[in-house]
Design a protein around this nucleic acid. Structure first.
Length: 554
RNA sequence: GCCCCCGUAGCUCAGUGGAUAGAGCAGCAGAUUCCUAAUCUGUUGGCCGCAGGUUCGAUUCCUGCCGGGGGCACCA
């Protein structure tokens, strides 16, 4: 619709210039907007305001010249008016909206999809939690944001790969192994103290118990280093498998799980350090090897090899991101917890130093989740091993509620997640509000089929019955969906789809209470069945982008 | 001290430079002989944190301050 109006304005401007009403033929890019106030029309353009300067005319004069030369070949317009400082407002005829509904029926499950990305290869890496403990609520938010973002990008014409980076190397894995081994010894009756810097959670004891069940006391007699390593490997593998299962239960399936350790095993880390050396961006100091990231905008230089000879996490991350771009991704998007924001400049520096445009590497920062129960904070302490896991939350509130609620805020905002609200089957719970639309419409369609009046396909002529303001309002809302998805993809903001669905749901519930679908007039009934079938399709498509189910019965 | 995010109605939050800033919740008053009341309708409620700047136009962009949260390792 916007593109049609843009053409219409373009032609009017050319005609006005040809007729001498506008002196210059260079017209700046004008916006077509949906005004906030209904009295300002269905669409509005600031053409006259932006063109005023180059035309050396008052905005309202420009607007008048343009309006006088508008041709309307498709018969879209009921009327146009000039308002305020020089806005041109377009009021469309009811029939002008029907093609939007036709598009929903025509495209079905693909409605909302676009070719925005033109096949651009994008990788979305998210969650990537250390395999040292189960996923908690914060990871859930990252999972919901990352997975939804990937779905939205895929629907927008990008070739998307979802990846999980397993930090299965380094010190925290050593600590994990040590923690399990100590618990293992305790279970065997040894009186060993359990240090504070070890992982405290009960799951460590469970892992130790499993190892004893398998190997008995065998690890007691093994070399210390050997024992730690075997415990570490077992624990990391088991925890990773558990995370994979939790994520699958959450509706998140990764295309690839990428091991940090593999970067060492294949010599990638060493190779990328050598490459940095060849570029002259690293230097030795105080026995360590430093990367001069400050030359690329970071606030200080960073260590890549410690003075004990061990590489830092940063070193393997450099290798990892280099390797990502070598795999041919045009864009690499990482979803990180906001507590890692300080890491962005050095990662950008690393990308740039590798000869890749740093704009191709983007980070979505996701703010914290405050877990509440009935308005009161739920106490959580990773240190003491007390936390509510993602799995616990899913068991309590269900997958759909969890995913949806995680996406009811901009990623930039901290999120209050109230377990009691998430369970409620009331107005307070946004996910049911949206799903209820799908169930309600399904119910009407079942009833219609029972009376032999089922929806039989789009009928352009019959649809002209849809002429009340309520009908048109609903169709307009459906028509916004594609641009919402596109904006969401462009701005990397999945919550836009959530808010749109709440809007659409409100529009439908309102419609439902004001208009009847199943009436005594067969033609009107058929037309309205085609309308609500379209609404159901869009609800379904939108929920699919969020990874939330669309139930037929509630 | 430096960096990032937030600050918009009583509460929780939308708002990619446009006109009279919106929604939900809470409060108040209503709606179902009829397609699912997990719904709807009406209504009260604002110095868009403060001060400058850019612009025809700023809640939106820039700078400084104030308040809240997070981060500033040869941990990850």
């Amino acid at each position: 619709m916007k593109t049609l109006l843009k053409e219409l304005i373009r032609h009017a401007a050319d005609r006005a210039h040809a007729a001498g009403a506008l002196p210059h033929d260079l017209f700046p890019e004008a916006e077509i907007d949906v005004p906030k106030v209904e009295a300002h029309g269905d669409y509005s353009t600031n053409f006259a305001l932006v063109a005023a300067r180059s035309q050396k005319m008052a905005p309202r004069q420009v607007a008048e010249a343009l309006c006088a030369h508008i041709a309307d070949p498709h018969g879209l317009l009921a009327r146009t008016e000039i308002a305020g400082p020089g806005f041109i407002n377009f009021f469309l005829r009811p029939s002008a909206w029907l093609p939007l509904l036709a598009a929903v029926h025509d495209q079905g499950p693909r409605y909302g999809s676009s070719d925005l990305g033109r096949g651009t290869k994008v990788q979305v890496e998210f969650v990537s939690s250390n395999p040292t403990g189960p996923l908690h609520v914060g990871h859930g938010r990252g999972a919901a944001v990352g997975d939804s973002m990937a779905r939205i990008l895929a629907a927008s014409g990008y070739a998307v790969q979802k990846e999980y980076y397993i930090n299965d190397s380094g010190r925290q894995i050593q600590t994990l192994g040590r923690s399990v081994l100590l618990r293992y010894r305790q279970l065997a009756g040894e009186a060993v103290s359990f240090p504070e810097d070890c992982y405290q959670g009960d799951y460590i004891v469970d892992l130790a118990r499993e190892l004893r069940a398998r190997h008995g006391d065998a690890l007691l007699t093994a070399e210390e280093a050997e024992g730690v390593m075997r415990c570490a490997r077992y624990a990391a593998d088991t925890i990773t498998a558990g995370m994979r299962q939790d994520l699958l239960d959450f509706g998140v399936a990764f295309d690839r799980w990428y091991s940090e350790q593999s970067l060492y095993d294949t010599g990638r880390v060493e190779a990328s350090l050598e490459a940095l050396q060849a570029r002259g961006v690293v230097y030795p100091q105080d026995g360590a090897l430093w990367f001069n990231t400050s030359a690329f905008g970071d606030e200080k230089d960073r260590v890549v090899v410690r003075n004990n000879g061990q590489t830092t996490y940063f070193a393997s991350d450099i290798a990892y991101h280099q390797e990502k771009f070598e795999r041919g991704f045009d864009r690499v998007i990482d979803v990180w917890g906001a507590d890692h924001h300080g890491y962005i400049p050095r990662m950008k520096a690393a990308v740039q130093a590798s000869g890749v445009d740093p704009a191709r590497f983007e980070v979505i920062l996701v703010q914290m989740v405050n877990l509440l129960r009935g308005g009161a904070p739920v106490a959580m302490s990773t240190r003491a091993g007390e936390f509510v896991t993602l799995s616990d939350v899913m068991k309590e509130v269900g997958r759909d509620a969890a995913r949806f609620i995680f996406l009811t805020r901009s990623a930039d905002s901290t999120l209050d997640f109230d377990l009691e609200v998430a369970k409620q089957k009331t107005n307070d719970n946004p996910v049911f509000y949206v799903q209820y639309v799908h169930a309600r419409i399904s119910s009407i369609l079942r009833k219609a089929e029972g009376t032999g009046l089922g929806f039989t396909g789009w009928d352009a002529a019959g649809a002209t019955c849809l002429d009340t303001p309520d009908d048109i309002q609903l169709i307009k809302t459906l028509g916004r969906f594609p641009e919402i998805v596109a904006a969401s993809a462009r701005l990397l903001e999945p919550h836009r789809v959530t808010f749109y669905l709440l809007d659409l749901a409100a529009a439908f519930h309102s419609y439902y209470n004001r208009q009847r679908v199943l009436t005594d007039a067969p033609a009107l009934t058929r037309a309205r069945l085609s309308l609500i079938t379209g609404v159901r399709q869009v609800i379904r498509n939108g929920l699919e982008l969020l990874g939330v189910s669309a139930p037929d019965v509630m």
